[in-house]
Design a protein around this nucleic acid. Sequence first.
RNA 1: GCCAGAGUAGCUCAGUGGUAGAGCAACGCACUCGUAAUGCGUAGGCCGUGGGUUCAAAUCCCAUCUCUGGCUCCA
Length: 634
Amino acid sequence: MITVTLKDGSQRSYQRGTTVAGVAKDISAGLARAALAGKVNGKLVDLSCPINEDVNLEILTFNDEEGREVYRHSTAHVLAQAVQRLFPGTKLAIGPAIKDGFYYDFDSEHKFTPEDLEKIEAEMNKIIKEDLPFTRFELSREEAIKKFKEQGEKYKVELIKDLPEDAVISCYSQGDWVDLCAGPHVPSTGRLKSVKLTGLAGAYWRGDEKNKMLQRIYGTSFPKKSMLDEYLQRLEEAKRRDHRKLGKELDLFSIQEEGPGFPFFHPKGMIIRNELENFWRVEHKKHGYQEVRTPIILNRALWEQSGHWEHYQENMYFTRIDDADYAIKPMNCPGSMLVYKTKIHSYRELPIRMGELGLVHRHELSGALHGLMRVRCFTQDDAHIFMLPSQVKQEIMGVIDLFDYFYGVFNLPYHVELSTKPEKAMGSDEIWELATNALKEALEERGIEYKINEGDGAFYGPKIDFHLEDSIGRTWQCGTIQLDFLMPEKFDLTYVGEDGQKHRPVMIHRVVFGSIERFIAILTEHYAGAFPTWLAPVQVRVIPITDRHIEYARQLAERLENKNIRVEVDARNEKMNYKIREAQNQKIPYMLVVGDKEIEQNSVAVRQRGKGDIGAMPVDQFEEKIMAEIISKA
RNA sequence: GCCAGAGUAGCUCAGUGGUAGAGCAACGCACUCGUAAUGCGUAGGCCGUGGGUUCAAAUCCCAUCUCUGGCUCCA
């Protein structure tokens, strides 16, 4: 007999060789029905996997992330089988589960069309109905290479060749169809219920643009139709939050053919922008930052000195002035360096925290542009901190705390990534290691979980990136903290130490919002356009019921304007209901309905966004209420 | 940049070779209204741009620009 320890700590005894499915069945019939795969001592296995010793066992269902992955991955196999049935000769690349679904990459003569997706989906449903068991078998490396070579599956052969020496090479078959796969899988295709193919896209083999472009089919699957419907509905909902749609509806900004990737900010968008910048200035002043502004166009020599000419040229725009080469700045740091160098600094001055809301231009690939999220010119809420080597950790932690405070004000959830030395980097491995470790230590001291992104650092230093989510769960890098030992070297920055000698300062580059443009996009989607009152372009709309109430409405508006409240009067000859509907669609936080009663009592009937009619109150009281809300940034 | 789709009125969209359409918005008139759309009327389009095929092109073909979803890249 063997002992199986379950996730909750309970233990059960079984005959040696009992399968994972057997254990599930023993626990309950419900679990047996829901079980998709198992996890034995932390290793994912099929339900059919026999247990031959004492183990820790987890039974995975669709409620577990790994269970969902197994389910989606199995669906990907069904997709591949369907595609090869319908389009013989199609070669298989890879087909993993991803967040909310799966994809499979194909190399086919046939160009898949959206209409094909329907046919493929129908074929998948057929395969599901056939209820083919997923069967695992192992092969030697030679056998596997031979097998896939014979089938003309050159990508699979390449994958096998790249597997480590000691790797177990396994395949899974469903009916007469076989795919190279580590598994595990659900027991049979019949376990898959609601399948939907969601998209079609090009994707380079192994993600390298030098390789052939394959055709990728995206899809998702759920064990219940209702779950699929719910998911599709969630996507619809997300479309309503899209900042590009809301940006147009709320008249915040536009992007026009005349300037792809160069956004135009409209008056209402500028209000949000200015509020964010004001907030930024106030907080940074509190935290000991000074503000500078450096030019947008600077001489080529500067960019050669900074290393941008060599390492960043493909992202830069250039111009000529009086027969000399100039570049439009893609980053603010070289400018800040020049400001630092205009005088001698004492160790007593450090750290110097030099902020700049700097407009940078970068040449992004046309296909990468995306609303305000990825543009070709944007304002970074930059700052460069020049400091003593001994101040590094403390300064980094200070910046981390500041970021956490900022994101907290907007209730934005974020995750952190640490990016290490890229291929195209300046400086020695030693200096990179030193800088990377400093970032790690600061993160660990703050108890922040982070993911490591190998080779994703800036060319001058490693960085901590703060990622925020958009409406459909894509994440965008916003804040970043980059530690830099190299620029101070390149620019020969110095400070005079206690000993009267010149020393080299260390530098941090950091942005909190990241780019104001991207941050506004994130906020728009986060709030679904219903900005908190302090940010709302229009905070109050006064709605006179009939023409004879317009004068009172205007007086009221003037009074609120004197308190710097952003207010509009809707004096159009329309019914009150109509005006309310429109103000509601514009997501204005407060509507003040005024008619005979209000004039008589010198009051306002308040309708609050999200709450509806909250009744009448004296004008003074409303003023206090909204002012308190604005000041608290609630 | 690459792959696939799309571009028609301010907005959302219909229109598959034969006189450019609808709803909303705008404008005018009437209504003067109490918490999510009052009625009637008017005006508005080089059908992204440039070529071509055709008696005839929003529609078919070619090129190009822009957008969307991915890939790559990144704040």
